[in-house]
Design a protein around this nucleic acid. Structure first.
Lengths: 132, 132
DNA sequence: TCAAACCATCACATAGATGTGAAGGTCAAT
DNA sequence: ATTGACCTTCACATCTATGTGATGGTTTGA
């Protein structure tokens, strides 16, 4: 598919698809006329990139993560340098910290919303926990 | 405490503490001489802010989330406008999406690292799954 | 009293992701 | 053959979080 279709199917500005390419996150082929042509699988890949960007990862790191997602991954074993493995470990841990921060706060928001709704609900209101 | 101590205890540049204040995320008192003075609880609050920023949330959203974290939260029930509740619901869901994206990718990285280590390990190498 | 170490405000710079528009090539359909 | 809808590259603008430095006031200790 060409850039327009990928843009629509991923909800991603064309400009950004070119930017991701420039950052080495995707590598579309070129038609004879110079148009970029994207493999079907790049739909998921772009969505993945967007998700990770939204979660606060920079393109530089995403670039290192993406090869981990390909299966079979045997192919990538050879180019695994020690520095890269160390980076991956750090990022794995950092993502774990992000996950727990998000989970904690998401749960607090959910609790808050539940409490507000219970408070605003009609009928026998569930008592808020007594504060002795 | 003053800004220098808070900066050291949270690993946050003074400049950023002033920026967070400007964005309405924290509201330190002022001493007679104009110096900012921070309550002990702001240490955790600043760390929370940093965690959320790192997870991709903008200060504008963080500002709306923070009041949900205060307990007892009964105080905040009154100022809960419908628009704010709707925003909070959206953000709760968006955070849930972030969490699953991060979890999926973190697990993929962890699997990759495990596979690489198993591959590089001495002794009877665990066979990679056969591809028929 | 002077120096060092704080603090204040203000302004300007950077980096990363993104928006936007100009100038021009390609292609399909009328 | 021309129009409209694609595509290309290039450049410049924007927004947010951050870094850095100038200029000057306050406090503390030698």
């Amino acid at each position: 598919m060409r850039i327009g279709e990928l843009s629509e199917r991923t909800g991603t500005h064309r400009r950004l698809l070119r930017y991701y390419e420039e950052q080495g996150l995707i590598a579309p082929d070129r038609c004879a006329n110079g148009y970029r042509t994207y493999d079907e699988r790049l739909v998921d890949r772009v969505l993945q990139i967007r998700g990770l960007l939204d979660a606060g990862l920079p393109t530089r790191i995403i670039k290192q993560i993406l090869p981990c997602l390909d299966k079979p991954r045997i192919i990538h074993f050879t180019d695994a340098t020690p520095e890269m493995l160390s980076t991956l470990e750090q990022e794995r841990d950092r993502m774990t910290r992000r996950i727990s921060c998000l989970t904690r706060n998401r749960d607090a928001i959910a609790d808050y919303l539940d409490a507000v709704r219970a408070d605003a609900a009609p009928g026998p209101a569930p008592e808020p926990p007594a504060i002795p």
